[in-house]
Every structure is written in structure tokens, then in C-alpha cells.
């Protein structure tokens, strides 16, 4: 179900406009995140605890292959895609270890986390986002505008 939801999210993503970013990378479309992170394979889900795809044995913990797909924004997209259900819940509640980790991955200072989460909550309520890519768009839009000084430049 989770995979189905995320796959749907990826497909639905084709209709969203990527937020303006310095390197103009839409991780969903250019980095192949869907297939790379969650291959559409139910069997793999069932056995993933002992059998982990070793195609990702690169020590860097970064599954992306293109140079443009190795930035903090891509890692953030990857994080959101892999943890969306719990992340969405934490954003609604306004705190949690997953949302803190997401902002850390994006390179945002811990002191700014509370304000960024508050801004994301407002956007989330307005836009009624329902999938991983929509959440990514909201996060990226906030950290590259209002909170650009507190987060890494991509």
C-alpha cells in the first residue's frame, strides 16, 4: 500500500511544477528516485529486512548517480519519499524526529527548525498537499525563500 501510494505520488508528480532552484533539478523526474528508492516490487518489500539491494553499496550513502542528483535537495526529496506517511503526521503535529532529520538533511540550522516547520504547516494547510512530491515542493519553496539564510544553498 505504501509503495502503491508512493508510486501514485511519483506519477502524480508529473503534473506539478518544480520549485525554482539554483540547479534546476527536479529529483523525481531527473534522478529517477521512484525506481531507485522504492522499486515497484512487492516481493522486495517483504524480504527487505534481510535482503537489501547491494546495488547501493557506495559508501557515500547516496544512491544518486548523476552529479546533479547528489545535492541536499535530492537527499531531502529522497528522505521525504521514503518516510512520507510519518513525516506528514509529524508536520501536522509540528514536531518529531523525522521532520528534524529532514531539515538537517536539507542543511537547515537547528535554531531555525521550529520556524520552518511552522511555515511549512501553514503552506500545507493552504495547499492541502497529499503526496510526497507536494510536500517536497512546499519544503523547498520555504527553504529557498523565507529561510534561505538558515539553510544550505544548493
Amino acid at each position: 500500500m505504501l509503495r502503491a501510494t508512493l508510486s501514485a505520488a511519483i506519477l502524480a508528480g508529473a503534473f506539478f511544477v518544480a520549485p525554482a532552484k539554483a540547479n534546476n533539478v527536479n529529483p523525481w523526474q531527473q534522478c529517477g528516485l521512484g525506481a531507485m528508492v522504492f522499486p515497484d516490487n512487492g516481493t522486495a518489500a517483504a524480504i527487505s529486512n534481510v535482503i537489501w539491494d547491494l546495488g547501493t553499496t557506495a559508501v557515500s550513502s547516496n544512491v544518486s548517480s548523476q552529479e546533479t542528483c547528489e545535492g541536499a535537495d535530492v537527499k531531502t526529496a529522497q528522505f521525504i519519499q521514503q518516510t512520507f506517511p510519518v513525516l506528514e503526521q509529524e508536520i501536522a503535529q509540528g514536531e518529531g524526529e523525522y521532520v528534524a532529520a529532514m531539515l538537517k538533511v536539507r542543511g537547515c540550522e537547528a535554531t531555525a527548525h521550529a520556524d520552518i516547520v511552522s511555515a511549512i504547516r501553514n503552506d500545507y494547510a493552504d495547499k492541502q498537499a497529499t503526496d510526497a512530491q507536494a510536500l517536497y515542493s512546499i519544503v523547498e519553496s520555504q527553504v529557498t525563500s523565507q529561510f534561505a539564510a538558515s539553510c544550505s544553498v544548493i
Partner: peptide, 12 residues
């Protein structure tokens, strides 16, 4: 073999 991920992936 061994593989390397960030822990969130396994915890999740």
C-alpha cells in the same frame, strides 16, 4: 555483502 544507508531508512 555489507551496505550503507542512513538509519532513517532502516528505522522506517
Amino acid at each position: 555483502g555489507f551496505s550503507d544507508q542512513l538509519f532513517y531508512r532502516h528505522q522506517h
